[in-house]
C-alpha cells in the first residue's frame, strides 16, 4: 500500500469513525442519563437518510433538506419520548429492549409504506462536489472532508454543552442522581425529553449527511446500530469521550480490515473476514477491560 492510498484509507476510517460517534454518542447519552437501552436508535439514522433523500427531492436542495430534517427529527424525538420512552425509566432493561425492538419493526414498516423498499442515492451538493487531487490517479472528495469537519465541530459543541453550560450541568446532575436533581427544582421531565430529542437528532443528522456518500437502503439502521453497540461497549457506557475514542478505533479497524491483505498459513484472513474484524476487536477489549477502555475500574 503506497502512501497516498494509505492516506485515503486513513481519512475514510476517521470519517466513518466520526459518523459512528454521532450515532453512538446519542445512544450512550440516553443510556448514561436516562438508563434506557434504545435499540431503535439505529432506526433514526435510517430515518435521517431517507429524510435527506425525500426532502432534497421535494424541496429541491440538500441545504434546505438538512435543517428541515433536523427540525423534524427533534419533533420525532420529543413525540417518541412522550409516547413511549418516558414509561421506561423505572422499568428493567428487558422491557426497554422489548419496546424499542417493537419500535424498530414499526419504523421499518412505516419506512416501507412511506418511501418503499428501494435503494436510493443522494447527490452530493454542488458546492462540495469537487475533489482534491493527490496524484495523477488518486483524489479525495471534498464532501467527505466537509463531513468529517462537521462531525468534529458537533463533537466540540457537545463537549462544550455538557461540560460548560447550565443545561450540561443539569444533564450531568440528572445522570448521577435523578431524585436529588428533581428535588433541587430542576424539571427532570423536560430535561430527559431534551436529551432524548438531542440523541434522535444526532443520529438522524448522521444519517442525513451520510446519505450522499453511502446509499440509502432499508437495512442501514440495524447495521449502524450493532456497530454502535460495539463502540459503546468498547468506550464504556455513558462515556461520551469513550465513545469518541472507540468510534475512531472502530472506524479505522473496519476500514483497514477491508483493504489490508492478511494470510495465515495460506488462508486468506483479510479482507475475506473483514466483517468480523470489529467483533474480534471487541472480544479482545472484553477480555482485557470488560468495563470499557476509558471507564475507571469500580472494584
Amino acid at each position: 500500500m503506497d502512501t497516498y492510498t494509505f492516506l485515503i484509507q486513513l481519512l475514510n476510517g476517521i470519517q466513518y469513525g466520526l459518523l459512528l460517534f454521532l450515532v453512538a454518542s446519542g445512544l450512550t447519552l440516553i443510556f448514561g442519563i436516562m438508563g434506557v437501552i434504545n435499540l431503535s436508535h439505529g432506526s433514526f439514522y435510517m430515518v435521517g437518510a431517507y429524510l435527506a433523500w425525500s426532502l432534497s427531492q421535494h424541496l429541491g436542495s440538500f441545504w434546505i433538506a438538512l435543517p428541515t430534517g433536523i427540525v423534524l427529527s427533534v419533533a420525532l424525538g420529543m413525540l417518541l419520548e412522550w409516547l413511549f420512552i418516558k414509561h421506561l425509566y423505572r422499568r428493567d432493561h428487558l422491557q426497554q429492549v422489548l419496546l424499542t425492538y417493537g419500535l424498530i419493526l414499526i419504523f421499518s414498516e412505516l419506512r416501507s409504506i412511506l418511501w418503499g423498499d428501494d435503494v436510493h442515492s443522494v447527490a452530493v451538493p454542488a458546492l462540495l462536489a469537487g475533489s482534491i487531487p493527490l496524484t495523477e490517479m488518486l483524489s479525495y472528495p471534498v464532501y467527505r472532508l466537509w463531513l468529517s469537519l462537521v462531525c468534529v465541530i458537533l463533537a466540540g459543541l457537545m463537549y462544550y454543552l455538557i461540560q460548560h453550560t447550565k443545561l450540561g450541568m443539569m444533564i450531568r446532575a440528572g445522570a448521577s442522581n435523578r431524585e436529588m436533581t428533581q428535588s433541587l427544582g430542576i424539571n427532570i421531565d423536560v430535561l430527559y425529553r431534551s436529551v432524548f430529542a438531542l440523541g434522535v437528532a444526532l443520529a438522524a443528522f448522521a444519517g442525513m449527511i451520510a446519505a450522499p456518500v453511502s446509499s440509502v437502503f432499508p437495512g442501514m439502521g440495524n447495521q449502524v446500530l450493532i456497530v454502535c453497540f460495539v463502540v459503546v461497549v468498547i468506550g464504556g457506557i455513558g462515556s461520551v469521550k469513550g465513545a469518541m475514542a472507540a468510534a475512531l478505533l472502530i472506524g479505522l479497524v473496519d476500514t483497514f480490515g477491508k483493504v489490508v491483505e492478511v494470510e495465515i498459513g495460506g488462508l486468506r484472513i483479510l479482507p475475506e473476514l473483514a466483517g468480523m474484524s470489529i467483533y474480534v476487536f471487541m472480544a479482545i477489549v472484553l477480555l482485557w477491560r470488560p468495563e470499557g477502555l476509558l471507564v475507571r475500574r469500580q472494584h
Partner: peptide, 28 residues
C-alpha cells in the same frame, strides 16, 4: 466472553457476537 459483562453490556455484547457469526456465514 459475554458473561464477563452484565446488565446492559450483556445485552449488547450477546447481540454483537451473534451478529459476528451472522457475518461469517453471510460474507464468506
Amino acid at each position: 466472553l459475554v458473561l464477563r459483562t452484565s446488565g446492559i453490556f450483556f445485552i449488547m455484547v450477546t447481540l454483537a457476537f451473534a451478529e459476528m457469526l451472522f457475518f461469517v456465514f453471510h460474507d464468506t
